[in-house]
Simulated scan of single mutants.
Amino acid sequence: MGITVQNITGNTAMVTWPKMAGCADSFYSVMYHPNWNSMLSTYSRKSFQKEERVPTTRSSFVVENLTPLTTYIVCVTCQSANPSSDQCRVFNTLERDPASASSTKKELALGIWLTSSVLLLIIAAVLLYGCLHLLCRRRHQHLQEQNGTSKQDHRKVLSKSIACTSEELSRQSQLRHDTEKKHPSGIQLATIIENPSACKEPIMPPSKSQEQVPMTGQCSAIN
């Protein structure tokens, strides 16, 4: 049939074939498989690892993603036919292309770098969130402590003020009670001093010796 394999590299190979006048199908089947020595002697479509469909308007196809330093068999048939020995060729791929190897290494390094960058960003975001959350929590606790302290101080001041007022009222009440016991007549005098208008009304003298003394005299003496 005249199938040829050209431009063989470590990963690709170009397969060409003459047009088949008796092929009535709408496409060609390009089948290839690695490690030809392990295949059965009979050619069966199921024995091939990969199969590509090519329109009948074309007479060549580039096989890609091959393994370097590997023996392959490639066959070209019509869609519905099983390949025969004259429709197949065996070829060996070359070593890996240095440029391709360098490109693969660069892609691998770039992938590792991108993955590391993403992980670092995620870790930094998590740490930043944790720090901000902890800072806000401490600040909230500090404000609560300040509010609690101010309330306690206010309560203490209010309690002291109430206690002082109660104590002062108790002292004044006790003092007034003692004064009433010691000087019963002095209450009227204190009332007159505090209320001069009380002199207009007659006040009963506390004893007989003071009955002849007019009350107006007391007021005038006081005035």
Rank of each mutant, 00 (worst) to 15 (best):
222 I>N: 11
102 S>I: 05
67 T>W: 01
39 M>W: 01
108 L>R: 11
202 P>N: 05
50 K>Y: 14
27 F>D: 09
149 T>H: 08
60 S>G: 04
141 Q>Y: 08
71 T>R: 02
68 P>E: 02
106 K>N: 08
3 I>G: 01
41 S>Y: 06
98 P>V: 03
133 H>T: 11
184 P>C: 05
96 R>D: 13
105 K>D: 13
72 Y>G: 01
163 A>L: 13
100 S>I: 13
18 P>M: 08
105 K>N: 10
68 P>Y: 02
179 T>M: 08
76 V>H: 00
151 K>L: 14
107 E>Q: 10
83 P>N: 00
50 K>P: 00
86 D>A: 08
71 T>N: 06
1 M>C: 02
152 Q>G: 09
118 V>A: 14
174 Q>C: 05
68 P>C: 00
143 L>W: 07
92 N>I: 04
222 I>R: 13
116 S>I: 14
95 E>K: 11
24 A>N: 15
208 K>S: 13
215 M>L: 01
21 A>I: 15
153 D>G: 12
33 H>A: 03
197 S>H: 10
217 G>L: 15
69 L>M: 10
170 S>W: 07
114 L>A: 03
180 E>N: 09
200 K>I: 09
124 A>C: 12
1 M>N: 08
92 N>G: 03
36 W>N: 14
161 S>T: 14
177 H>Y: 09
61 F>Q: 06
25 D>P: 03
151 K>Y: 08
18 P>Y: 10
46 K>S: 13
19 K>F: 15
155 R>D: 12
81 A>N: 04
150 S>N: 13
170 S>H: 11
88 C>N: 02
22 G>Y: 10
221 A>I: 07
219 C>V: 03
97 D>A: 06
55 P>G: 08
47 S>L: 10
110 L>M: 11
176 R>H: 11
41 S>P: 02
218 Q>E: 05
70 T>L: 01
187 I>N: 07
105 K>I: 12
44 S>A: 06
165 T>G: 09
55 P>Q: 03
171 R>K: 15
196 P>S: 04
12 T>V: 06
221 A>M: 09
135 L>H: 15
208 K>W: 05
176 R>D: 08
199 C>V: 04
164 C>D: 15
76 V>N: 02
16 T>S: 15
128 L>T: 15
110 L>S: 07
160 K>T: 05
82 N>D: 06
44 S>V: 04
188 Q>S: 11
143 L>A: 12
178 D>V: 04
55 P>R: 01
86 D>Y: 02
210 Q>D: 07
90 V>M: 02
68 P>K: 00
84 S>P: 00
136 C>L: 14
199 C>M: 08
46 K>I: 04
86 D>C: 04
119 L>D: 03
171 R>N: 15
104 T>C: 02
50 K>T: 12
37 N>W: 07
165 T>N: 12
60 S>F: 06
176 R>C: 03
222 I>S: 06
12 T>D: 07
115 T>G: 09
177 H>K: 12
203 I>N: 04
162 I>H: 07
57 T>I: 07
155 R>C: 07
160 K>F: 08
13 A>N: 00
147 N>G: 11
119 L>I: 14
196 P>D: 05
28 Y>C: 01
139 R>I: 03
